[in-house]
């Protein structure tokens, strides 16, 4: 029990402390049962940069949501491999917090947001280059259960069973608000009091996606609602798919920061994420391609 959960806890700890990505590269997890019928990524309009844009050593700072933890390591490593002398440093945190940090004068090179609202606000204030904001990935919700499924949840309707201990995100962060809209949609298809009964089972509104994954993996809660990509990153968990008609698509956006210390590299990094190779990394992690 302890041995199994320790690495997980350490990851959770690192994330809670809003630290950067850990140096250990994770194995590329193959598409598991949670991977959706993702079509091959469509080629984006921008071509990938082939060579280094600068000779001097450069550290490219990227603000990214914690949902990108696993993908960011691979995206960063790929960009570093293609651009000698460039180190990509991800700062993983909450999009609203990072937007507030931009507002207060933080100058990373690239801003990646899990919420459209925060990116739009940042663009409005000219904190990011407004006409270069692009959708690079989409994500949807899934229910995660501990491997032994102690509450015997077999369907979405079971989430409303009395006594189920459920973890969701606090409504103030993207995962939390997406969860609430999904429950609204399910209300229509399952039962009119479904949402109220599910919310009565919520034991904690966690302040991030990764704490939900950690606590469900430990078996402290019977279920949690997270992004599909988080479930792919934690293959020991049991999952319960949410039908597309009730699901909520969360859009991830990327943009170079207006005051970026390394604008050329920032543009190149954005392009590399949108390139087929970058999109392949994201779909392998359970993200949906940038889409229509």
């Amino acid at each position: 029990m302890l041995r199994r959960s320790l690495p997980l806890l350490l990851t959770g700890l690192a994330l809670l402390a809003a630290c950067g990505a850990s140096p250990t590269a994770p194995p590329v997890s193959p598409a598991t049962t949670v991977a959706t019928s993702a079509p091959a990524p469509t080629a984006p309009p921008t071509p990938a940069p082939a060579t280094a844009v600068s000779a001097a050593p450069v550290t490219l700072n990227v603000f990214a949501p914690a949902a990108l933890t696993e993908a960011s390591r691979q995206l960063g490593a790929a960009f570093e491999a293609a651009n000698a002398g460039v180190t990509v440093a991800f700062e993983l945190g909450h999009s609203p917090t990072q937007r507030a940090q931009l507002e207060q004068g933080a100058t990373p090179d690239v801003f990646i947001s899990a919420s459209r609202k925060d990116m739009d606000l940042a663009a409005e204030q000219q904190l990011v280059v407004a006409d270069q904001v692009q959708v690079f990935a989409r994500n949807k919700l899934i229910v995660i259960l501990p491997p032994d499924n102690p509450a015997q949840i077999e369907s979405l309707a079971d989430l409303a069973k009395p006594g189920v201990q459920l973890l969701i995100g606090t409504p103030d962060i993207p995962i939390g608000s997406a969860t609430l809209s999904m429950l609204d949609k399910l209300n229509a298809s399952i039962a009119p009091d479904f949402k109220a009964r599910v919310l009565a089972n919520v034991v904690s509104q966690e302040v991030g996606v990764k704490p939900i994954v950690s606590k469900v993996s430990l078996g402290e809660a019977d279920a949690g609602i997270v992004y599909v990509s988080d479930a792919v990153a934690a293959p020991t968990l049991t999952t319960l798919a949410i039908p597309d008609e009730a699901n909520v698509i969360v859009v991830f956006t990327i943009a170079p920061v207006t005051a970026a210390p390394h604008p050329e590299e920032a543009a190149a990094f954005v392009a590399s994420v949108l390139a087929p190779e970058g999109q392949a990394v994201l779909t392998a992690q359970g993200f949906l391609p940038a889409g229509p």
Partner: peptide, 27 residues
């Protein structure tokens, strides 16, 4: 508190937790 007790208004959301959550939305 946030790790062990979680964050639930009226049950486990003490002032420091409310500040943390509030910082993200309602300064």
């Amino acid at each position: 508190t946030i790790v062990f007790a979680g964050n639930m208004e009226g049950r486990t959301q003490t002032i420091p937790l409310a500040i943390f959550v509030g910082f993200e939305t309602n300064l």
